[in-house]
């Protein structure tokens, strides 16, 4: 495997005020490789979705730890990992289907994974029940 040109590791408690911090921190880091405004917005949105999922679904608003790892390579490929040790996802295909949500209040759109999938080049979700979720997102910048 090639060596990343730079990397960042961030551990945050799963409280919603950290959603903004997580996406801003990742955006500042990625700014080092001169992304376009659209690229940076896409990445911010994808990170926000992954972190929100960990808070709302993974930890169900209880406190836990969220790991965010970001690295980029010489060719401007950005790899972002968001990992929680929450309840995990029973059926990933179902969870990833657009509009699917476990929420019954009508306030959640069920579009989180669809956003990550659309705004990044590649999305991989791995999970073990009661052990957590690992979301890996890759985007090659222009």
């Amino acid at each position: 495997m090639r060596r990343a040109k730079n990397f960042m590791k961030l551990y945050l408690p799963s409280i919603s005020v950290n959603e903004g911090l997580a996406r801003s921190a990742v955006a500042s880091f990625v700014a080092q490789i001169n992304p376009t405004i659209e690229e940076i917005s896409d990445i911010k949105c994808a990170v926000s979705e992954a972190v929100t999922n960990s808070i709302v679904h993974g930890y169900k608003y209880k406190e836990g730890q969220i790991y965010i790892g970001v690295k980029y390579y010489e060719d401007k490929t950005v790899v972002i990992e968001v990992i929680d040790k929450g309840c995990g996802i029973e059926d990933i295909d179902v969870a990833m289907a657009p509009l699917f949500t476990t929420d019954t209040s009508g306030e959640r759109s069920g579009m989180g994974f669809a956003v990550m999938q659309t705004f990044m080049d590649k999305l991989e979700v791995k999970s073990r029940l009661n052990q957590g979720v690992r979301v890996t997102m890759i985007k090659k910048l222009g």
């Binding site: 949105c45 926000s48 979705e49 929100t52 306030e107 959640r108 759109s109 069920g110 989180g112 956003v115």
Partner: peptide, 16 residues
């Protein structure tokens, strides 16, 4: 300047 899918939920909820 920034909105994620929670914003979609907010809009759809108010629309409903």
């Amino acid at each position: 300047e920034f909105m994620d899918s929670s914003g979609l939920g907010l809009i759809l909820g108010r629309f409903t």
